[in-house]
Amino acid sequence: MISNIHINGRVIGRNQAPYIIAEMSANHNGHLEAALRIVEAAKSAGADAIKIQTYRPDTITLKSDLPDFQITEGLWAGRTLYDLYEWAHTPWDWHKPLFDYARKIGITIFSSPFDNTAVDLLEDLGAPAYKIASFEVVDLALIRYVASTGKPMIMSTGMANAEEIAEAIEAARVGGCKQLAILHCVSGYPAPASDYNLRTLADMIERFGLITGLSDHTLDNITALTSIALGASIIEKHFTLDRNGGGPDDSFSLEPAGLNQLCRDSRTVWQALGQVGYSRKASEETNTKFRRSLYFIKDLYEGDIITEDSIRSVRPGFGLAPKYLNEVIGRRLKRDVKANTAVTSDSIAGLFETEM
């Protein structure tokens, strides 16, 4: 049995509507006011949580121009790692106003820490949960330190193989994490849907026995919504106010209308999955009369033998079910019947009567 996790009073699990996380990342573009508007927009769109990232450039990389630290391809080509993270980071003195505002308007806020000092800052702010980013899933010491807080932890698994995922899970358990979830992820920005191989998600659920979700870097919602049908309990998407805003992550992030659609449609998909069942549904009840049933197609009289040319299977469904056709043919009528009236058991001699 896969155990649910709880974040800020919200139950997250297989029998719950998907938990939607809006990832702010660097989409504030260096403006606290923009960051606050993103928090508000995520709440308005219906997201369960807004997530930020907690690092400084010097806590995530080294200030170096050597080739190892140069970005030579992709969205951020031409920058050093230090320059990228200086551009993209969320200043630490913004964290308290962001946490305060999120709590004021009623949306959960938590973060991805990238070193122990970030965890300490987030603990001081009362973070209700933690996210381990895909690139940090191999940093087992960081995972153990986060786990020591006793808070729920969500780990992205982009680029990690099955062995590395198992090692990260073991580190979290050893560190004391009791509420753990993992996210299937492709760490491409953006990532093509064809890279996601969503059948892996179902395998992860079976293999690791944890609440599992999707960190989705595709440009639309199709991959995320499909993942719900395969068992995803958490959906994370990058979120911005304007995809053309020019920031590090803007171009592959959802705008408010897209996030609103994701929140709405994910719940619809989850409701449509429902439970295994073959009983008639409430929405079908008024249409049962349109099923086929047996009807007399000519006038007959008491004592007549019912022949094949005197009844038919037609709509509506007020008569006997068509499966009784062969049992009805050849029997004698107990009373007169009119054409275009339903065949019923009380008009036919011997039908359904128990022999003594």
Rank of each mutant, 00 (worst) to 15 (best):
T72N: 06
T288S: 11
W76P: 00
I50M: 03
S44H: 09
G274S: 06
A127G: 03
F135A: 12
V137T: 09
G330Y: 03
A102V: 01
R103V: 09
T90S: 04
N287H: 14
V269N: 00
V328S: 00
L351S: 00
S112Q: 03
L75E: 05
W94T: 01
M155D: 09
T354Q: 10
G13F: 04
G13N: 06
E123D: 14
S227R: 02
Y145M: 09
A193G: 13
A172E: 05
M204V: 13
P316Q: 12
K237I: 13
D65Q: 08
S251G: 08
V11Y: 15
F296I: 02
A42D: 01
Y295M: 03
Y196G: 02
P113Q: 09
I165N: 05
I21A: 02
K96C: 05
V146P: 01
S347P: 02
R243P: 07
T72M: 05
A272C: 11
F318V: 09
E285C: 04
L325C: 12
L121D: 09
V39C: 05
P316K: 08
S3I: 10
R79T: 10
I109D: 01
A232P: 05
F99D: 00
R37G: 02
G303I: 14
A339R: 14
T354A: 14
H28D: 11
A45M: 03
G245W: 06
L320P: 00
L210A: 11
Y189E: 03
E355F: 13
T80L: 04
A77T: 07
N244K: 15
S44M: 14
G231P: 04
T157I: 06
E86F: 15
S134W: 05
T212Y: 03
N221H: 10
L140I: 12
A191C: 07
F208C: 07
E285D: 15
G317R: 01
T223D: 07
T341N: 04
